[in-house]
């Protein structure tokens, strides 16, 4: 079942963002994290020390585990930042400033 079903959501037209080059469908109002979860992506950061994958943990902007690079700006909290048409979302390696 689509998790949008119980609330009867009829979102506006979907738009496209990319995640590590792959086009993903996004809905108006969704955060970057919601777009990624809807595409069954649950990790988009690799940690600074052990290079382990991370994604959403607290979901409300407290834990900073979901940091991601959006349009070349690293360290964006995916659970807070709204997705916008054409966003280029990339997995964040370490601090995101390595390049």
């Amino acid at each position: 079942m689509n998790p949008r079903e119980p609330s009867g959501a009829r979102p506006g037209p979907a738009f496209t963002v990319t995640f590590d080059g792959r086009p993903l469908e996004a809905l108006p109002g969704q955060t970057v994290a919601a777009v990624l979860w809807a595409a069954d992506v649950v990790s988009w950061r690799s940690t600074r020390v052990a290079a382990r994958p991370r994604g959403v943990f607290c979901g409300i902007g407290v834990c900073f585990d979901c940091l991601v690079t959006v349009n070349d700006r690293p360290n964006q909290r995916a659970c807070l930042v709204p997705a916008r048409p054409g966003d280029v979302i990339r997995t964040q390696e370490g601090t995101g400033h390595a390049h």
């Binding site: 949008r4 119980p6 959501a9 979102p11 809905l27 108006p28 109002g29 969704q30």
Partner: peptide, 13 residues
């Protein structure tokens, strides 16, 4: 639900 999702039954959850 975020406004853009236009939930008709926002009370559901």
């Amino acid at each position: 639900p975020a406004a853009g999702l236009r939930a008709r039954r926002p009370r559901a959850p």
